[in-house]
Design a binder for these strands. Structure first.
Length: 563
DNA sequence: GGCTCGCCTG
DNA sequence: CAGGCGAGCC
């Protein structure tokens, strides 16, 4: 029997043309490893479903607030502690805020503001439009600033010009807030909100009779302690803004967590949709190597970037370096260090924010995050920014959730396994460095490393078993010339290997792997043919030969900023 | 002693 | 594929 005929004719009867598949792959290759895989939509859809369900879990607030905030009312979804002096059903208490309610209620509210207890988290002001309820609690806070302004301006009367300057300062500071207040359906006589809205205009046009009427009532608050409280409010607002900016800086650097921490379905959807609009074409990790028109498959791009998918980190990223704090030189920055930096920074920031901001400013912080999400989602519909059904999410829980979302995978996934199998086509004995390079999204530990090593051990085991089996089979078939032992894409041996390591058959197996397989087959054939297999350790020599045939793992498998 | 490897087993 | 085990290496 002709050995060359043996290798092909014996095993190629039902072979498939993988080269044809390869060409097909090339035609469908796209740059984006995560989003361009239209041909694997079925697979991706299942992942998306998982993502959506998991993100919905976060959005529901159950993950953050219910578990983490035992004080939350499980039936209403809102905190049972309602610090706002007015019930939500009264449109922020407008009806109660009348002249007859007296000064005590106002004082109580102002004192609450100063104490940072300005709002009930779940309250939604129904009589406001545009941006007011975007930041439900934050707006509430700003609204109270207007109340303060009104108090001050109403108390101004014919008094000091310095007080006027003070109010003008406040006017300029909160000028952008003025436009958010709607005064519909409320008469100026009975609506304190209207009074607040118009306070400055009334202040400037002191001929307003309504204003004059309120002035006499509000003059109660013109005392020095009230001014101090007013300034305290300003300081509190500044602190809130500073905290918000701090948090924003985190999310600018790590936008991928915005979707999940927000708990806002609209935001989530918009972020998802904006992904497709992102002209940068980069994933959150900014994988540059995927833009190299290398010969690889969609399956590879799926597997390589799959951890992001599994972690619901599907958001795109602007061109700036993704996750660097302090050091903006992304070159030669180990990904592990970047991730660790993110974790540490997020932890510090979140802990810092949680410890510094008062209970009221937690809400401001939360709303700042909320708005930031909208900003990044591009086409922002202000109406979507109102989320009446949005359950109150305990900001402290948010802090923990956010921090956890920064974490790396602490376990290997099935996609890591798929990736490892594809890597086996290049390296049978990967070093720990290569493993860390290729699985940079995994928090390496002894356990993880051992598992990866074990995987490749299992891969080798299967590989060598197949080699021995086919070598013995060739011997029984009477193959006498080792040169006739070849491994080609049509051969049964390759099909068995391909089925094991590349079950989906959508990865272009490198030719080098065929060469290595052929060498291995011949090594086994020779050893068996000369009786070396009687030595219990006869395979060791073969292993030693094969271990020297490893190739470099392509850049697609490695971290994005590795050379 | 810790680690890796291969073999065996489930 | 993972766990257990022993061998070998450093």
């Amino acid at each position: 029997m002709n050995p060359s005929v043996w290798s092909e004719g014996m095993y190629s009867s039902s072979s498939i043309c993988l080269d044809g598949f390869h060409a097909e792959h090339l035609s469908s290759f796209q740059l984006d490893p995560v989003l361009s895989n239209v041909d694997v939509s079925a697979h991706k859809n299942s992942e998306d479903r998982k993502m959506l369900s998991e993100s919905a879990y976060y959005r529901s607030g159950d993950a953050g607030s219910s578990l983490m905030n035992p004080s939350k009312d499980s039936t209403t979804g809102h905190s049972p502690i309602r610090r706002h002096p007015f019930p939500a059903s009264s449109s922020c208490g407008h009806d109660e805020w009348n002249l007859n309610s007296g000064h005590q209620a106002k004082r109580a509210r102002v004192e609450n503001i100063i104490k940072g207890m300005t709002s009930s988290p779940g309250m939604h002001c129904t009589n406001v439009t545009r941006n007011q309820c975007v930041k439900t609690d934050g707006t509430q806070e700003k609204e109270t600033i207007h109340e303060q302004d009104y108090v001050e301006t109403s108390g101004f009367g014919s008094q000091r010009a310095g007080k006027q300057l003070e109010n003008q300062h406040l006017r300029a500071r909160f000028d952008h807030v003025d436009e958010v207040i709607d005064t519909k359906d409320e008469s100026p006589e009975t609506s304190p909100r209207d009074a607040f809205t118009d306070s400055y205009s009334e202040f400037q046009t002191s001929s307003s009779r309504e204003y004059q009427g309120r002035k006499s009532v509000m003059s109660y608050f013109q005392s020095q302690p009230e001014r101090i409280k007013l300034m305290a409010e300003v300081l509190k607002y500044e602190l809130s803004r500073a905290v918000s900016r701090s948090v924003d800086s985190i999310f600018k650097s790590m936008p991928l967590i915005q979707t999940n921490i927000e708990g806002n379905a609209e935001t989530d959807i918009r972020l998802q949709s904006s992904v497709g609009e992102d002209e940068s074409g980069l994933t959150c990790c900014g994988n540059a190597e995927v833009q190299v028109p290398d010969v690889q498959t969609e399956a590879l791009s799926l597997v390589v970037q799959k951890p992001q998918l599994e972690n619901k980190f599907v958001l795109h990223h602007r061109p700036q370096p993704p996750i660097l704090f302090g050091n903006h030189d992304s070159k030669d920055q180990p990904s592990e260090r970047n991730h660790e930096a993110v974790r540490q920074h997020a932890l510090r920031c979140s802990q810092d924010a949680c410890s510094r901001v008062g209970p009221a400013n937690f809400d401001t912080l939360r709303n700042s995050i909320k708005v930031r999400s909208k900003v990044n989602s591009r086409s922002v519909d202000p109406t979507l920014m109102e989320s009446p059904g949005l359950p109150h999410v305990n900001i402290e829980s948010d802090c923990l959730v956010k921090t956890n979302l920064y974490m790396l995978n602490e376990g290997l996934t099935t996609n890591h396994l798929k990736k490892a199998k594809l890597m086996f086509f290049y390296t049978r004995y990967p070093s720990s460095l290569v493993l860390k390079m290729c699985f940079h999204d995994v928090q390496f530990s002894r356990c993880i490393t051992s598992q990866l090593i074990k995987w490749f051990s299992n891969f080798r085991e299967f590989f060598y078993i197949q080699m021995e089996k086919f070598a013995r089979h060739a011997l029984t078939e009477g193959v006498s010339d080792v040169r006739g032992l070849t491994v080609e894409r049509q051969s049964e041996l390759f099909r068995a290997l391909n089925m094991h390591y590349n079950k989906a058959n959508d990865f272009q197996v490198p030719d080098r792997f065929l060469e290595v397989a052929e060498i291995t087959l011949r090594e086994f054939y020779i050893s068996i043919s000369i009786g070396k297999d009687r030595d219990p350790s006869w395979k060791k020599a073969i292993y030693k030969v094969i271990s020297k045939l490893d190739s470099d793992v392509p850049a697609q498998f490695k971290r994005h900023h590795s050379a």
